[in-house]
């Protein structure tokens, strides 16, 4: 992967009792933010997406400055080369699954091309049979996968190859692991083929190890460690294996 895929993030921001204070450079095609709940992972993701305005800091993706608090720069979410899916699915209740998945389609694709891409993305997330259904008729897990598919389609059609950042906040939380293990490798090849850089959030060690990404370990709003998953999460892995009775 090209090493110029680069997200530079420096910010200080208070959310309730938590002070998020980080200085990060993400170069890997896929980075996992790992840490316990309430550690500030989601706040970081929301700051990159444009839903949190850091009190102090600077966020830049490639050559584009997204936030520079000192200079008063704040690019609104929709204008960023960033597509995101939040932790809760938030499918638009008045649209079919297909319309939801197509909502973020862009970059002048023909309607038919978009439909084709939508079908492929839905197949990756194993929701291709649900195209005509309404969100209220889906199970929680199905909704979550449709929401992830929607963000992936948006990122896949947002701009020229390799120009878009995709943010996924716990995309597989609560999903049965068998399904997750089938989807993840396909999603991995989907995004790497298209040069989409991904930052995802998880607190699941197994999920982190399946992707072999770079990991940023976060606790109490600070970066504890950053590097390859085998190094950063070695301790967690041992603990998990120990619990499995190895």
């Amino acid at each position: 992967m090209s090493s110029d895929s680069l997200l530079a993030l420096r910010m200080r921001h208070r959310v309730g009792a938590l002070l998020v204070d980080v200085d990060l450079r993400l170069t890997a095609p896929w980075t996992v933010l790992f840490g316990p709940s309430g550690s500030g992972k989601t706040t970081l993701l929301r700051a990159i997406a444009g839903f949190v305005r850091p009190e102090v800091g600077r966020i830049a993706y490639r050559e584009t400055v997204l936030v520079d608090a000192a200079a008063g720069i704040f690019v609104p979410a929709h204008a960023r080369p960033v597509r995101s899916a939040a932790q809760s699915a938030r499918l638009f209740p008045h649209m079919t699954v297909q319309a939801n998945v197509l909502y973020g389609g862009g970059w002048g694709l023909q309607r038919e091309q978009e439909r084709e891409v939508a079908e492929q993305v839905m197949a990756v997330f194993r929701v291709q049979g649900l195209a005509k259904r309404m969100p209220r008729d889906l199970s929680g897990g199905e909704r979550q996968r449709v929401a992830a598919a929607r963000a992936v389609l948006a990122a896949s059609t947002a701009g020229p190859l390799g120009s878009t950042l995709l943010l996924l906040d716990e995309p597989f939380a609560g999903l049965d692991t068998g399904l997750r293990d089938t989807i993840l490798p396909e999603l991995w090849s989907w995004v790497t083929e298209r040069g989409i850089q991904v930052v995802s959030v998880t607190h699941d060690v197994a999920e982190a190890f399946q992707l072999l990404p770079d990991v940023v370990k976060i606790a109490d709003g600070r970066v504890v460690a950053q590097g390859p998953v085998e190094v950063v999460l070695a301790e967690e892995r041992e603990r998990l294996l120990g619990r499995l009775g190895r």
Binding site: A49, G50, F51, P76, A77, H78, V82, R83, S84, A85, A86, S88, R90, F92, H94, Y103, G104, G106, A147, R150, A151, A154, A158, L167
Partner: peptide
Amino acid sequence: EYVEAAAGLGAKPGRVFWSVVLP
């Protein structure tokens, strides 16, 4: 969250209003 979901998919505020909020 619905407004954010739409903005996170690249929809401009006007489109968010007409296609998500109003319906």
